[in-house]
Nucleic acid binder design. Structure first.
Lengths: 104, 104
DNA sequence: TATTTGCGCAACCAATTAGTTGCATTTATA
DNA sequence: TATAAATGCAACTAATTGGTTGCGCAAATA
């Protein structure tokens, strides 16, 4: 089973879960209240997020608080890094590239 | 059919395609030579990348050159932006947060 | 102690995905 | 002009995905 951050953030519900727990650690039940799906469906998403280490769990009695693990997000940032230059320099280099294409 | 950048970059083959054409525009046949799959499979990936505007095409006779569109990658960068502070400040703010959790 | 609550796990299901093969179309070439 | 090459499209298939329901277990509560 492939389980990497890119596959994990592909699902909009999982991105929403990340956004929620980034503000505050939450239990599966608390999270499920924010969505139209069942708690089990949310738990499945959490499982995927946990397996790729975007989320950590903290047991507290019978409740489990899920925390966001920002460190893992750096992997995405590092991948983007390779391309960042291409859009940040677009007003100098890239515009010339586009002009060249147009004039072909 | 959901077609957004996050779903597009979820597939490792598509990320590899992006990495290749970011360096140089390529035709489907040229791209397919870099992978173990058929040209049609690669074309399907290109179609998905085109639909979410990560890739632009430039017809040249019977060949089609696929170009990388870095602008669209900014959407991912903007989404990451919300969380960037969480890992960049982790040696100041976040460590305190973690200490608080431990002492609960 | 009996009951409720919070949770994970397993089985199942429909939709989607990533791949295949076969075919039609257009452009280049012999 | 006949043939080869480059590509897209359609049909089909196996695997994966996101969801459901039902269950069991441990912790909180009446």
């Amino acid at each position: 089973m492939r389980r990497d951050v890119f596959q994990a953030i592909a699902d909009p519900t999982r991105r929403a879960i990340i956004a929620l727990i980034a503000l505050q650690a939450m239990t599966p039940n608390a999270l499920a209240e924010h969505f139209d799906t069942s708690r089990q469906a949310v738990s499945k998403h959490i499982k995927i997020l946990t397996e790729c280490e975007l989320v950590r769990q903290e047991q507290s009695g019978r409740e489990i608080y899920y925390h966001f693990n920002p460190t893992k997000m750096k992997e995405i940032d590092q991948w983007l890094e390779k391309f960042r230059a291409l859009w940040e320099d677009r007003f100098s280099q890239l515009d010339n590239v586009l002009l060249n294409l147009k004039n072909k």
